[in-house]
Design a protein around this nucleic acid. Structure first.
Lengths: 197, 197, 197, 197
DNA sequence: ACGTAAGCGAGACGGTACGTCCCGTCTTGGC
DNA sequence: GCCAAGACGGGACGTACCGTCTCGCTTACGT
């Protein structure tokens, strides 16, 4: 019983198998070959799917990547700061984990590829930012909590602090210059220093 | 009698005309069409040059962009902070100018294109970072001077502050979300606060 | 249920329009420009077809020419000897027609081009030989009939006579020296003389 | 000490070393790679000579091949029929040698290449015909002698006989179908039969 | 239960750009 | 003035993908 009259005409329904095979193939190929060697043709072949099936549902390569991110087919794990009551310690720990993840060699090329996709697709950019911390459960959530609990001064701009931390990581990614461990430990202190209560 | 046995005879010399025409054409087309619609074929046609002349001297599109940046064919103007003795004011002024430049609509697509090039070519990344402040005459220079003069505390990490400021701009560029004027005024204070003497 | 397990699914079918447009374009350009100025790119442009469509179906320029010959897109008319009962007269008439056709200035460049193609593609050579006489309906057929009817001696080698007549034409084509009318009249007599009954 | 006053202006004279190196390189490469893979660039490189040196002296690749033939850099040996007084035996022997030479596998590709060159350069065609027999010392000479001595009838057309013999060889070369030994023995008899006294 | 229409795989199509090869001309500096 | 070396503008090569378009098939709704 369709919810609304004339909702859909007869015919086969979208194949979930095809959808997941495509996302999986795209994720694998992105990790293996990088964003600019990623081709729709290659994805279709790997997913054993016709090209039109991809074009029917996604307008562009980058939209496909955005959905991969949304679907956790890429970057399945999320790094979230703890809340021990010590915001500087928590953020420093989080930052170190992010840095290690991003510099680890296996994922650095992948992240760089996602970054390339992000430049021409805002949805990718949004998803990437979420993965890296711009989400209520993650960095911004921890900072908000810190403001609420008085660990950070009331006028502290959570958005600015978050952008600084993530922006620096992105900048280092782009310029192929990672963070040394000491750097990574010191960086959050430098940024947060002016906002600690 | 040749100076050394293995010395190769000279042959015709590289044409400076061709080189500059190529760099100019690449710069124009990058600004007009963006990095991923930029084609070697198009550059060759615009520069009235054979494709092989480009391939003879540059291994890739991105290497060509890197040389455009080096040659000041792209981004000819450099924004440099003043030194009035008030580091926060100077950096805030500089940051505002950068933000206005980067958000101004004419150059934002260009910068985004350069960013895309930077992701697959470290030389582009280095040149771009220089243009944005990582140079003794620019942001890092001003911050170094502030440390030297005692405006900033001795242990302040100039590199970290610089990465934060520039990284945030890059992040906003990638995610298509610019800085509001108030944001731009407040941001440097948030970052520098912890390092002011 | 598919008839057999390994059967591949069909997909779109080859476009006959494209095929004939390509053959026509190739034939025209061969006649206009000669074999070595013939380019795949030019054929594709004339036929309003993508280059890959040509490469999908023909491995080389010469294979394309071979199919033009097979398809009667080149050399549509065939010159066939009559059978009046007088083999020398019939062959002489046929030879004269071939010589006139081949020397006529419009087709001589075309035939020369086909000859060039024949050198690096045996299929072209075979088709060209057929057009010139190596076919049951043509010269060899007439000679076979003459042997059967006793006009030629039983041991006469039809293949040898045919090769002589056609070979001489080819040789004259290659060396840019045509047959004078008298020459053309006399030649078959010289060759056939030893085989007449 | 110049032989005549004011005869020529100063400057270096054409280098014979360069000329022979070029002819040798062209001959080798023609034999190795065939006519259509033969490039001026390759010849220059093999001969350790600048490209302009080639263009200064030869207008085209095929002219260069023609000079190779003239200079005996290609096809150094000439096959000449003997004169034992038996023209059929002599021509048959000569024909057999030519067939074996032409079919031998090492030289067949070379001859085919020369044939390709002959199609767009009449000088090559002339030289090739000479090598194969159209020269007073060779086939036509032997046939002329036969007419003079009465072995062949007075009205026999030497040119026609020669064209038939050589044309058939060329035809077989083009169509990749050689002569069997029996064929080769029988062929001259078939052709000459009508002209023997 | 059946017709109908959408989804699907396959893959051909007209295109664009790739990066390479060679063309024939030119420029340079040494002999 | 000839030569080697080799850069140049140009054009075609054969390939890789693009995004669109048939093809026949499978599938599953709605009558």
């Amino acid at each position: 019983m369709p919810a609304e009259a004339g909702a859909r005409r007869p015919g086969a329904v979208r194949s979930e198998d095809a959808r997941t095979a495509i996302l999986a193939a795209a994720s694998e190929l992105l990790a293996e070959q990088g964003y600019d060697h990623l081709t729709i043709e290659g994805i279709a072949a790997r997913a054993k799917v016709g090209k039109p099936t991809i074009y029917r549902w996604w307008p562009s390569k980058s939209a496909l990547i955005a959905e991969c991110l949304l679907d956790d087919a890429l970057l399945p794990e999320t790094i979230t700061p703890r809340n021990t009551g010590d915001v500087l310690a928590d953020v420093t720990e989080w930052f170190g984990k992010i840095v290690r993840f991003v510099d680890d060699g296996k994922s650095t090329a992948l992240i760089r590829s996602i970054l390339a996709a992000a430049i021409d697709n805002n949805d990718v950019a949004i998803q990437l930012a979420r993965r890296l911390g711009a989400t209520p459960e993650s960095l911004e959530g921890r900072l908000d909590a810190a403001v609420a609990s008085g660990e950070l001064v009331a006028e502290a701009s959570v958005r600015h602090l978050s952008d600084s931390l993530i922006g620096a990581i992105v900048l280092r990614l782009i310029s192929h210059s990672g963070f040394e461990p000491d750097d990574a430990r010191q960086f959050p202190r430098t940024i947060l220093a002016g906002s600690l209560a």
